[in-house]
């Protein structure tokens, strides 16, 4: 169980011959992910760690019928790679690439909506259903299979919290990185809906940060729908000054929108327990 990916997921790696693509294709294979093909225009006919490489997604699909793709293509070409995947029948796309122009991301999302394609990222560590499938770049040894779902806008902070859970014997159903950019595919509400239907998930951790209003909208959704599973949250950026981008392109407080206070207040009012520090999350899950 888990959401979006599992042991039956068949994935291709776009940009498999680049440094990151090659490195992480190996780690994903070792984790047990079914990587059926890779693509890299101009490198068709070669192999990477025994994985066949094609010039186009079209050809890879004719021979392997994958349903997922993970993209490591450099930012100026990443949107084209995403279009190539969805126009060739891939239904789940994970975009690892960071620094993709917002305009490109917006057109990718618009087409994905028309085709009903699930897009994760860009600028995401990816997604992992522990001990089944990993489409991402996260260090796999800090995750273990279990009943807690994680949804996060931040990579290393997810690792910090997942490592804390695992250390305390709390396993995870699926950990999903939404991505640190202002425009991403899946948002908190989309993921909450998926976790609600997943029988293996008993509680959800929501890791947000300053910028935008997606956490506030998630809080409204939780309150309005009387969300049936317990949700624990952490919001990074309480000490961030307005007008300064804190690393992630999406992490910026403009005017009064997007502050940590506003998010924490909205979540608390919706009945979500908000942790003061990352390490408090495991404690809240164990002792309430």
């Amino acid at each position: 169980m888990g959401i979006i990916i599992d042991k039956n997921t068949r994935a291709i790696v776009q940009g498999i011959t680049g440094t990151q693509g090659t490195f992480h294709a190996k780690l994903m294979l070792e984790y047990g992910t079914k990587i059926v093909a890779g693509t890299s225009p101009g490198k068709g006919g070669t192999h990477v760690h025994g994985i066949p490489v094609y010039d186009t997604v079209e050809e890879a699909q004719e021979k392997h019928s994958a349903n997922a793709s993970i993209i490591f293509v450099p930012a100026p070409f990443a949107a084209d790679a995403a279009f190539e995947a969805m126009e060739n029948g891939i239904t789940t796309i994970v975009i690892i690439t960071e620094h993709i122009p917002i305009k490109d991301a917006i057109s990718v999302m618009a087409r994905a909506k028309q085709l009903n394609t699930t897009v994760i990222g860009p600028n995401t560590p990816g997604i992992i259903t522990p001990e089944q499938c990993k489409l991402g770049i996260m260090p796999s040894h800090i995750f273990k299979s279990g009943n807690v779902g994680m949804i996060s806008r931040s990579g290393t902070l997810t690792y910090e919290i997942a490592a804390g859970l695992t250390k305390n014997g709390i396993g995870q159903s699926t950990c999903l990185g939404l991505g640190g950019d202002p425009i991403t595919g899946l948002n908190f509400i989309d993921a909450l809906k998926m976790f609600e239907k997943d029988a293996s998930t008993q509680a959800i951790i929501l890791i947000g940060e300053i910028g935008g209003n997606l956490e506030e909208l998630a809080a409204q959704y939780i309150a309005k729908e009387k969300y049936p599973k317990p949700v624990v949250a952490f919001i990074a950026g309480r000490s961030a000054p307005p007008g300064k981008r804190m690393g992630h392109a999406g992490a910026i407080v403009m005017g009064k929108v997007g502050t940590a206070e506003s998010k924490i207040q909205a979540l608390t009012e919706a009945g979500v327990k908000v942790a003061d520090k990352p390490s408090d999350i495991a404690r809240i899950l164990m002792h309430g």
Partner: peptide, 13 residues
């Protein structure tokens, strides 16, 4: 990592 650094600043505070 941006999120981890932000959380570090928050923890210091």
């Amino acid at each position: 990592g941006a999120g981890l650094v932000m959380a570090t600043l928050d923890t210091i505070q």
